[in-house]
Design a protein around this nucleic acid. Structure first.
Length: 482
RNA sequence: GGCCCCAUCGUCUAGCGGUUAGGACGCCGCCCUCUCAAGGCGGAAGCGGGGGUUCGAUUCCCCCUGGGGCUACCA
């Protein structure tokens, strides 16, 4: 198993999804674990839906997640090109071979005819598969149709009564009966090969030893195996990993909320957190530790520990994992990462006007609340908005000694105070007035912010500074306490 | 409909014939605490059902049920 080579072969028909990212990740982990090779190939044979922008986006997403490959897109390599639409001549050769061998034939059925055929089979409850109508056309009939300008598809002639066995590395032995599959199309009428065909050619020519992909491809594998047989190719090893489901146990799709990697990046999830979380979806390390570095995951990743059952994507757990990684960041690292999120918020100018010291304090005061970076904007109101008194705050301000507390604070508040100094000052005030801490803190908090909850009070005061804090106190005294 | 895969707390999972069925998220409670978080401690919560095999099944086999996938000139 020393020279293993895997691949990830996305179709650029949309952004990189959670599911695709997980497949890419498992391939990456498998390769990295044994120092194998990893090819990134683009399967863009669906001309209708493939778009170059998506190709770029997928590649960028992989990079962002921390997934590297050793060959293929951007890296180059001796087995290129790595974009399927640039490999058309290659597929053509094998198509010709299959045609010559009699393992494939031209099919002139129109889409309407096929649709009608399918509908009939559906109505009569019989097996849904191609009837084989064109499989018996003789040379002359074929030539006539070609001469008439009909563009044929190419179908693979499925052998009869053959058992195809997939020795899957995660699922074990899975067998299929060839008779359950009709002659399937391997090249469309425009000459472009279809997935099941192109994937076989590419995997063989690129020397792929292990095909690790999502379970949805398990049922396609026997068709691919028949192609391997017809072309006299040696099978790679297969490993089909289970699907990722939404909370309703359906395959993840756009209606499950954020499903693309870019969305998570935009929300402010850390790539290392997603890397860790995705690795845990369908795989588990031996110990009980769940927060693991990429290196640790690579070191212990094996297909033997990959789960067979599908996994529901749990946003709560992702949030927790992300929080764990956020906590590891220093305040200055966080401050830097948070900037773009604040700069595009309504508080952009407020943040811009803050000096580094105060901005650092602000970050420190809200960091424990963050689940993802974009959350930061939810906690900015209290710093920059004029106090709007909540019911509980008004109650806290209605107490007996409130005015004394406020005036004492206002008159004795020291200059240039850092949170710790302010904390000491409040402590001293508590002592001096012979009150319970709460009877000092709550009136102050309420008077300053209009709320009974929020960031630690010493931080709030320090961030506002002496002048602003006194202004707020006075405003409350005049308007509320009187 | 046919073929295939899957099945342990709500969720992610450990388990690979004998365990008080372990961990994590979430939830609940307590502690800490000016508040909200964070943190610490504790708790509730699971082997889908029925047959076998076995001295003994969560674990092995079969059936059922449930969920998912494939069945495209998509991948």
């Amino acid at each position: 198993m020393m020279n293993s080579k895997v691949r990830f072969a996305p179709s650029p028909t949309g952004p990189l999804h959670i599911g695709g990212a997980r497949s890419a990740l498992f391939n990456y982990l498998f390769a990295a674990h044994q120092n194998g090779q990893f090819v990134l190939r683009i399967e863009d044979t669906d001309l209708e839906r493939s778009r170059p922008e998506f190709e770029d986006e997928i590649i960028e997403s992989l990079r962002w997640l921390g997934i590297d490959w050793t060959e293929g897109m951007l890296q180059g390599g001796v087995n290129g090109p790595y974009r399927q639409t640039e490999r058309l001549e290659i597929y053509q050769q094998y198509l010709k071979q299959l045609l010559n061998q009699g393992d494939a034939y031209y099919c002139f059925c129109t889409q309407e005819e096929l649709e009608a055929e399918r509908q009939d089979q559906l109505d009569s409850g019989s097996m849904q598969r191609y009837s084989g109508k064109c499989s018996t056309l003789n040379d002359q009939e074929v030539q006539e149709r070609l001469a008439a300008g009909i563009k044929p598809t190419v179908r693979f002639r499925v052998p009869e009564h053959k058992i195809q066995v997939v020795n899957d590395l995660v699922r074990g032995r899975v067998s299929f009966e060839s008779d359950n599959s009709g002659d399937f199309i391997i090249a469309k009428s425009d000459g472009i090969p279809v997935y099941n065909f192109a994937v076989v050619i590419d995997d063989v020519l690129m020397g792929i030893t292990h095909v690790i992909r999502a379970e949805e491809h398990l049922s396609n594998t026997p068709r691919q195996l028949m192609l391997y047989d017809a072309l006299n190719f040696i099978y790679p090893k297969f490993a089909h990993i289970s699907l990722i489901l939404g909370s309703d146990r359906q395959k993840m799709s756009k209606r499950h909320g954020a499903t693309s990697l870019v969305q998570y990046r935009e929300m402010g999830y850390l790539p290392e957190a997603l890397f860790n979380f995705l690795a845990l979806l369908g795989w588990s390390p031996e110990g009980e530790q769940e927060i693991l570095t990429a290196e640790e995951i690579i070191a212990s990743f094996t297909l033997e520990r990959v789960a067979k059952s599908p996994a529901v994507f749990d946003m709560d757990k992702l949030n927790w994992v992300n929080q764990q990684y956020l906590k590891k960041k220093t305040t200055s690292e966080l401050a830097k990462m948070l900037k773009p999120f604040l700069s595009s918020s309504e508080y952009a100018s407020d943040i811009e006007n803050m000096d580094d010291l105060r901005y650092g304090l602000l970050v420190e005061s809200v960091r424990d609340h963050l689940v993802c970076l974009s959350d930061v904007t939810k906690y900015m109101d209290v710093f920059f908005r004029e106090a709007v008194y909540e019911e509980e705050a008004l109650q806290a301000l209605a107490g007996d000694g409130v005015l004394t507390v406020l005036e004492n604070f206002r008159d004795d508040l020291p200059y240039f105070s850092e949170p710790e100094e302010i904390k000491q000052f409040i402590k001293a005030t508590v002592k001096k007035l012979k009150l319970k801490p709460k009877d000092v803190y709550m009136p102050l908090r309420s008077a300053l912010s209009g709320q009974t909850h929020g960031p630690e009070l010493p931080y709030l005061i320090s961030i506002w500074g002496r002048e602003e804090s006194i202004r707020r106190i006075n405003r409350t005294i005049v308007n509320i306490v009187k």
